[in-house]
Design a protein around this nucleic acid. Structure first.
Lengths: 117, 117
DNA sequence: CTGATCTACAACCATTTGGTTGTATTTAAC
DNA sequence: GTTAAATACAACCAAATGGTTGTAGATCAG
């Protein structure tokens, strides 16, 4: 039930990587098919260097990988890591669901016990 | 199938809000039961002001709400927004799944037909 | 009313972020 | 062997982030 293997810092990196529209778009593209830095850069109104940095952030987060192919660097998506993020949110939602279930118990009868602070 | 109503900037805010361990912990707590700023602050090694700022970020992201109750401000979690984040990730994963399906089609042979949209 | 508590907010600070330009290295093409 | 293309990387910059302290306004208790 506990997702981890990921340190809080890694989770930070993961969600931080997703908190930028350009990076999300890059992930979307390279989940469809790998693409070079240059190909990606042509799609955004920014320098190749800027895209390089975005890709570096995504690599650190584990959302994409780089594979050198001759003089280009092919970027491809890692769906497992998207899944990891999903599981983290599922855990969060589960916390709420458990409360919801407890509330159901309250409605069902007086046997429910509050957790002490 | 399309999640939207959320602008890219709103999605940015949502994931950015989740990209901090303290904020994730606050969300977890207030999903269980609402809590005042002060109560929350006692749990973290930082000032009340710092926690206030974290809560403000979470409010902007729609992950929590504040409700004044006398002199305190009760913070409670919004599970719908957690759900929204999940759907955004589901969409990302779906992009990959569609590619996977296309690859499957190729492997299965040329007779396979995509489901019309 | 007085005093304590809870929250708000401004000002400040160091670090990180997201971008730039410029230079260097590697690889491909001719 | 030159030249062009793709990437890497350092240096720089403005703005945002995540924290602090200090001050002030509400609200509750006595």
């Amino acid at each position: 039930m506990v997702v981890d293997q990921l340190s809080p810092a890694e989770v930070d990196r993961l969600f931080h990587a997703l908190a930028d529209a350009t990076r999300r778009d890059i992930v979307r593209r390279v989940l469809v098919h790998e693409q070079s830095i240059g190909e990606l850069a042509r799609r955004y109104p920014m320098s190749v260097t800027a895209v390089q940095k975005h890709v570096a952030v995504l690599v650190e987060a584990g959302l994409v990988t780089k594979n050198r192919r001759g003089r280009e660097q092919r970027v491809s998506g890692r769906p497992e890591t998207v899944r990891t993020a999903q599981r983290l949110l599922d855990e969060l939602e589960q916390v709420w669901r458990e409360r919801f279930d407890r509330m159901g118990s309250v409605l069902a009868g007086p046997t429910t016990q509050e957790e002490p602070t």
